[in-house]
C-alpha cells in the first residue's frame, strides 16, 4: 500500500452549507411560506420569553384584580381584561407556551413511535408488517378527541395525560407514512449496493433509508403542528387538558364563551392566537414541501 504523503483535507462543511442556502433560495420563492416561517419564529421566541416580558406576570400566576373587570382594550391592557380582571395580553402570550410545547411534544412522540413501527414494518415485511400495520389500523379508527376524553377520565386531567392521549391516536399516521416511504426506498439501487457490500439491516435502515425519508416526515410534522395546537385548544375548550390557573388558549376561549358578544375581546384574542399559530405552521409546512419535495408542487 502506497502511503499518501499529502495531508488529509479538512472535513469541510461548505457543501452542506451550500445545500442549505440552495434550499432557502427555493423556500424564498414563495412569500407566503416566508411569512409562515416568520410567524412561527416569533411565536417560538414569545413562548420562550413570555413570562419575562408580560406586563402583569402576577395575573399569569393566578392573581385577580376585580376592580378592573372587563376593561376593553386600552393602552394599559392591550387585549383588555377578563371576568377576573386579569390582563388578557399577558394570558395570551404565556398561553403560547402550553400550546407550542404540547404541540411539539405530540408530534415528536408520534414521530418516534410511528417511525419505529413504520420502519420495522416496512423493512422486514411479512408477518411483522402484517401484525404492526393491523395494530395501527385499529388505532386509526379511534377519534382522537374521544380517546383523549377517555384518557382524561381514566388518568385525570393534566398536560401530560393530554399529550399522551393525543399521541396515542397520532402515531399511526406516521407509522403508515414511514412504512410507505421505507417500502419505496428499499427498492432503490443504493440499498442494493449497500447489501452487496455486506451491510446489515441496522446500517441499511439507519444510514441509508431513514436519512432519505426525513423530508416527507418534516413536512407532515410541520403541517401537524398546526393541528396539534388546534387539538390541544379543543381539549382545553371542552374542559379537559390544562387546569387553571395555567393559561391556555382553548381554556381562555372556553371561559370567554359566556361573555360574548358584549366582552368580545376576551374571546377574540385567544381565538386569533390559535388562528395565527395554525395558519403559520400550515404555511411553513407548505413551503417546506415545495423545498423538500419539488415534485408535489401545484
Amino acid at each position: 500500500m502506497t502511503m499518501i504523503q499529502t495531508s488529509l483535507p479538512k472535513r469541510d462543511t461548505s457543501a452542506r452549507l451550500e445545500n442549505w442556502s440552495r434550499a432557502f433560495y427555493r423556500f424564498r420563492q414563495s412569500w407566503l411560506s416566508v411569512i409562515g416561517l416568520a410567524i412561527v419564529a416569533v411565536l417560538i421566541v414569545i413562548a420562550l420569553v413570555a413570562p419575562l416580558i408580560v406586563p402583569y406576570p402576577e395575573h399569569v400566576a393566578g392573581a385577580t384584580d376585580t376592580a378592573a373587570r372587563f376593561m376593553p382594550p386600552s393602552a394599559e391592557h392591550w387585549f383588555g381584561t377578563n371576568a377576573l380582571g386579569q390582563d388578557m395580553f399577558s394570558l395570551v402570550l404565556v398561553g403560547s407556551q402550553v400550546s407550542l410545547f404540547s404541540g411539539l411534544a405530540v408530534v415528536i412522540i408520534a414521530i418516534a413511535v410511528g417511525g419505529l413501527v413504520g420502519a420495522v414494518a416496512g423493512y422486514f415485511g411479512g408477518w411483522i408488517d402484517e401484525t404492526l400495520m393491523r395494530l395501527t389500523d385499529l388505532l386509526l379508527t379511534i377519534p382522537s378527541l374521544i380517546l383523549a376524553m377517555a384518557v382524561a377520565a381514566a388518568l385525570g386531567t393534566g398536560i401530560l395525560n393530554m399529550i399522551i392521549a393525543i399521541s396515542i391516536t397520532w402515531w399511526p399516521a406516521y407509522a403508515r407514512l414511514i412504512r410507505g416511504e421505507v417500502l419505496v426506498k428499499k427498492e432503490e439501487q443504493f440499498i442494493t449496493a449497500a447489501r452487496a457490500l455486506g451491510a446489515g439491516p441496522g446500517r441499511i435502515l439507519g444510514r441509508h433509508i431513514l436519512p432519505n425519508i426525513i423530508s416527507p416526515v418534516v413536512v407532515k410534522a410541520s403541517l401537524d403542528m398546526g393541528f396539534a395546537i388546534l387539538t390541544v385548544a379543543s381539549l382545553g375548550f371542552v374542559g379537559i387538558g390544562v387546569r387553571a390557573p395555567v393559561p391556555e388558549w382553548g381554556t381562555l376561549l372556553s371561559t370567554a364563551r359566556g361573555y360574548m358578544p358584549d366582552y368580545w375581546w376576551t374571546a377574540l384574542f385567544p381565538g386569533f392566537a390559535i388562528f395565527l399559530a395554525v395558519l403559520a405552521f400550515n404555511l411553513l409546512g407548505d413551503g417546506l414541501r415545495d423545498v423538500l419535495d419539488p415534485k408535489a408542487r401545484r
Partner: peptide, 21 residues
C-alpha cells in the same frame, strides 16, 4: 466473501446514497 466480490451498478444516479458525502 462480499468484501472480495463487488459490483458496479448501471445507474450512477441511483446507486449512490444522495445524503452521504
Amino acid at each position: 466473501l462480499r468484501a472480495r466480490l463487488q459490483i458496479v451498478f448501471q445507474d450512477p444516479y441511483a446507486s449512490l446514497n444522495p445524503r452521504m458525502t
